[in-house]
Amino acid sequence: MSDQADSSKIVALACDHAGLEMKRALLPVLEEMGVAALDLGTDTSDSVDYPDFADRLAQALADGRAERGILVCGSGIGISIAANRHAHIRAALCHNSTDARLSRQHNDANVIAFGARTMGDEVAKECVRAFLTTGFEGGRHERRVSKMSPGRPGSA
C-alpha cells in the first residue's frame, strides 16, 4: 500500500449540476497532492443529466487520458450506477475515508463517487486523499476483482 499519490497520474473529475460545488472543492486537494486534474464538467448550475458525465469520465479512462476518476451527483447513486455500466470501470460510492480506503485495497476501484447532498466537502476531501494514496492489496481479492474486470487474469 502506497502512502502518497503518484504525481504522474491524472485524475478525471465529472459531475452533474448538483455536484458542481463539491467538484470545485475537490480540485485544490488534487493540486496540493501534486495530482493533475482533468475536469470534464459540468461547469454550470444548469440542469444536466449525470449519465452523460459518467460516460465522459469512463471514456477518459478508456482513452488513457486519466488513471482514476471522481464523480459527484446529488446522492452519488445515479452517477455511480451510470459509470459501472462500463466494463472497465469499478466505481465505488463512498461515504467516509474507510469506504474509500477499502474500495482501493479490496476492490481496486478506479473511480470514487460522492453525493453532494448527502455528505460534506471535508469528508469528501478525506475520501479523495485515502482513495489516491491507497493501493490494491491483491492476494485473495485478485480473484474477485478479476471476475468484475475484463482483461484481467481470471476474468470471463
Results as ranks from 00 to 15, higher is better:
residue 2 S to H: 15
residue 3 D to Q: 15
residue 4 Q to V: 14
residue 7 S to T: 13
residue 7 S to H: 14
residue 8 S to K: 15
residue 9 K to H: 12
residue 10 I to G: 04
residue 10 I to C: 03
residue 11 V to Y: 01
residue 11 V to A: 01
residue 12 A to C: 03
residue 12 A to I: 00
residue 12 A to P: 03
residue 13 L to K: 01
residue 15 C to Q: 00
residue 16 D to P: 01
residue 17 H to K: 04
residue 18 A to G: 10
residue 19 G to D: 15
residue 22 M to A: 07
residue 23 K to C: 10
residue 28 P to R: 10
residue 33 M to K: 11
residue 35 V to C: 03
residue 35 V to H: 02
residue 39 D to S: 07
residue 41 G to R: 01
residue 41 G to P: 03
residue 41 G to C: 05
residue 43 D to Y: 12
residue 44 T to L: 03
residue 47 S to A: 15
residue 48 V to W: 06
residue 49 D to P: 12
residue 52 D to Y: 06
residue 54 A to T: 02
residue 55 D to E: 14
residue 57 L to T: 04
residue 58 A to P: 09
residue 59 Q to L: 10
residue 61 L to Q: 08
residue 61 L to A: 06
residue 62 A to R: 13
residue 62 A to I: 15
residue 62 A to D: 15
residue 63 D to K: 06
residue 69 G to Q: 05
residue 70 I to L: 07
residue 73 C to N: 06
residue 76 G to D: 01
residue 76 G to H: 00
residue 78 G to K: 00
residue 81 I to T: 02
residue 81 I to N: 02
residue 83 A to I: 07
residue 86 H to N: 08
residue 86 H to M: 06
residue 90 R to S: 09
residue 92 A to N: 11
residue 94 C to T: 02
residue 95 H to D: 11
residue 96 N to D: 13
residue 96 N to Y: 11
residue 97 S to G: 15
residue 100 A to M: 05
residue 100 A to L: 08
residue 102 L to I: 09
residue 102 L to T: 12
residue 103 S to G: 10
residue 104 R to T: 08
residue 106 H to S: 09
residue 109 A to S: 14
residue 110 N to C: 09
residue 111 V to P: 01
residue 112 I to T: 13
residue 113 A to M: 04
residue 116 A to V: 01
residue 118 T to M: 10
residue 119 M to I: 09
residue 120 G to F: 13
residue 120 G to K: 14
residue 121 D to W: 04
residue 122 E to G: 05
residue 123 V to L: 15
residue 124 A to N: 02
residue 126 E to M: 07
residue 128 V to D: 00
residue 128 V to I: 12
residue 133 T to R: 12
residue 136 F to L: 10
residue 140 R to I: 04
residue 141 H to V: 07
residue 142 E to C: 11
residue 143 R to N: 03
residue 146 S to L: 07
residue 147 K to S: 08
residue 151 G to C: 15
residue 153 P to I: 05
residue 154 G to S: 12
residue 155 S to R: 15
residue 156 A to E: 02
